[in-house]
Design a protein around this nucleic acid. Structure first.
Ligand SMILES: [Mn+2]
Ligand SMILES: [Mn+2]
Ligand SMILES: [Zn+2]
Ligand SMILES: [Zn+2]
Lengths: 142, 142
DNA sequence: ATCCTTCTTTAGAATTATTCCAATTTCAAC
DNA sequence: GTTGAAATTGGAATAATTCTAAAGAAGGAT
């Protein structure tokens, strides 16, 4: 089993479900997200994958990331107008953006809180997506 | 009292607090947001203010909007990577983005829910800003 | 195996919201 | 009235992302 194929089972499955082909580019991009789950930007994914697939293009990284998002394997995460970041955590979760380091931390969301959040919507409002974002400074000593 | 001065009291106060000058451009931009509270983009604010101040520049609209945000008179609201929208509602509230019409609706947030949301953060995580966004399709009949 | 079609990747150009810049204008203080 | 900071302006620059057109890979049918 090749290194980049470690996580290819779920990927191959979801791609097949969507009628899409599996490719080395898609596997390496997905693997980059799973190997270092630090919410990298497309540029950062590009830099990481290039060490293993030197011929890959930035356009392909964007294409692959969009494919992974559409297959529900990855979430796109936006803070203000900063470059989009990518997250392979499929559990319901919020994001804490540390303004000191720029790091993004996952905050797991209990189903009970999610239910209470949905309950603030007036009748007729039906949310397909809920995004919860925190911004603040974490103490330097961690 | 001139039309654009209707809302100038809070503005003049906050500008003074921040050591900034009051200007017609700032007053008209703020007034555009208060008069039609539909979360316009900078371009839309520009179009609205130009009817009253034909000489205003888009750069100035951006400058004024940023000033208003820094004075805590206006919130900048982002959905995905769409152009930033501006909201003069100072109460704690979430946003519902209607994917059918593109409209943005304010969802008032009870303090109790805000407290529960903050409570999901691990010790040491202190959030200066909390953003809650819903996305979905509203029934056409409203 | 070859043909055919479709999907994917690629390099580079285009797009576009926003920011930056240098020159003018405004304005408050002295 | 002079002066200096602050604000505005038009246009250039920036930068993340998307688009385009051409080349490459892959799968199914024959
Ligand atoms: Mn990037
Ligand atoms: Mn706009
Ligand atoms: Zn995440
Ligand atoms: Zn709002």
């Amino acid at each position: 089993m090749s290194t980049h194929a470690i996580h290819s089972d779920a990927l191959a499955q979801k791609l097949a479900d969507s009628g899409l082909r599996n490719t080395p580019q898609r596997e390496f991009v997905y693997d980059a997200l799973l190997t270092k789950r630090d919410h990298p930007t497309a540029d950062e994914v590009y830099a990481r994958v290039k060490t293993q697939l030197p011929g890959i293009s930035l356009a392909t990284v964007y294409n692959c990331l969009e494919t992974l998002v559409q297959c529900d394997l990855v979430r796109a995460v936006n803070f203000e107008r900063a470059p989009t970041r990518y997250c392979p955590n499929l559990h319901p979760h919020a994001h804490f953006h540390d303004e000191t380091t720029g790091a993004t931390h996952d905050i797991e969301l209990p189903a009970s809180l999610l239910a209470e959040i949905k309950a603030v919507l007036p009748p007729g409002y039906n949310a397909d997506v809920i995004e919860l974002t925190f911004r603040g400074k974490l103490p330097a000593t961690r």
